[in-house]
């Protein structure tokens, strides 16, 4: 299976500042991928590179096997819903569908009409008068009805209230199931990803900390609590993600495929949020110990 999205040494510089540097990533097809990271981690930059809104300053990125050059054939295969789900305020819902039909050779008018109908959007309503959630749904409709193979969504629910957020994601899941498309969804909220995605990529300071199937990640990460111990003495196959120590006790967060056999440890499972937080905290400490930990907003 070839990756729908592949980055190698990918970097993007704005002036002197690197917004994304040395990013390696592969996204398998047929997945709903959650791209998670704190604000400023480079998620938006990465997605904009993937749709060709930006050109890389370093490295390479391939989307569906080719570079995102902005060619028409490539455009038709990749859908993108930008940050804050932009729509034309002065155009009506029906105008937006017409726009989609005019600009996309593979436009699925039945799908679009059906969606608008089901979502209860009034076709004559101007997009500027829609609620944030409805606008996001309209932008998503445009993204889906062009029938892309890969749909990229840049923080599509960031500005929505919790209810609209859930509805949007549920609806997205439905569309994914119907159409067999691959989705990459960026968010700074783990709860969004937990609800919608089956594959996780954690991006911190423009580097991929961990990437993998969510079920698999949860199954292979463990929290070990026991008497104080030097991390160097742990078995080699146990990768330490984070550690904390008191005078007598050590707590490790390890990743391993093998079962934990040492009876000294009290082993507990992790939630996705703990897992993501561990990876985010890790990178900040490793690179710049004086810096405060990146915060992750939790939404419950």
């Amino acid at each position: 299976m070839t990756a729908v999205l592949r980055a190698q040494g990918l970097g993007k510089k704005y002036g002197r500042r690197w917004a994304l540097s040395d990013c390696d990533l592969e996204v398998p097809p047929g997945r709903v991928v959650g791209l998670v990271g704190p604000n400023g981690a480079g998620k938006s930059t990465f997605l904009n590179l993937a749709v060709g809104m930006l050109a890389p300053s370093a490295g390479e990125i391939e989307v569906l096997g080719t570079r995102p050059t902005g060619r028409r054939a490539q455009r038709a295969k990749v859908g993108f819903v930008g940050q804050d789900t932009p729509t034309y305020a002065a155009l009506s819902v029906a105008d937006h569908l017409r726009l989609g039909a005019h600009l996309n050779p593979g436009w699925d008018a039945a799908l679009a009409d059906d969606r608008v109908d089901r979502l209860g959007l009034d076709p004559r309503q101007r997009a500027g008068r829609l609620s944030g959630g409805q606008r996001a749904q309209l932008a998503l409709t445009l993204g889906i009805a062009k029938r892309p193979e890969l749909l990229l969504l840049d923080e599509p629910v960031a500005s929505l209230d919790p209810l609209a957020r859930r509805e949007f994601l549920q609806d997205l899941m439905g569309a994914v199931a119907d159409q067999q498309l691959s989705v990459v969804l960026s968010s700074h909220l783990v709860s969004d990803v937990e609800r919608a995605c089956d594959y996780l990529v954690v991006l911190v300071d423009s580097r991929v900390q961990v990437a993998g199937d969510i079920e698999n990640l949860l199954a292979t990460h463990h929290r070990l609590t026991g008497p104080r111990r030097d991390p160097a003495k742990l078995p080699a196959e146990q990768l330490v993600v984070s550690e904390s120590h008191t005078d007598r006790q050590s707590t490790f967060l390890v990743r391993t495929d093998a079962p934990i056999l040492d009876p000294a440890w009290e082993v507990s499972q992790l939630g996705l949020e703990d897992l993501v937080l561990a990876y985010m905290g890790r990178s900040a400490e490793q690179r710049n110990p004086s810096r405060s930990r990146p915060t992750l907003e939790a939404l419950r």
Binding site: V51, M53, G70, R71, R72, R75, A76, V78, G79, F80, G82, Q83, D84, P86, T87, Y88, A89, L99, G100, L103, N104, P105, G106, A139, L142, G143, K146
Partner: peptide
């Protein structure tokens, strides 16, 4: 308004 992100991601150069 950010709508260039909408229109440039239709199938048009």
């Amino acid at each position: 308004a950010g709508t260039h992100r909408l229109v440039w991601n239709q199938s048009i150069t």
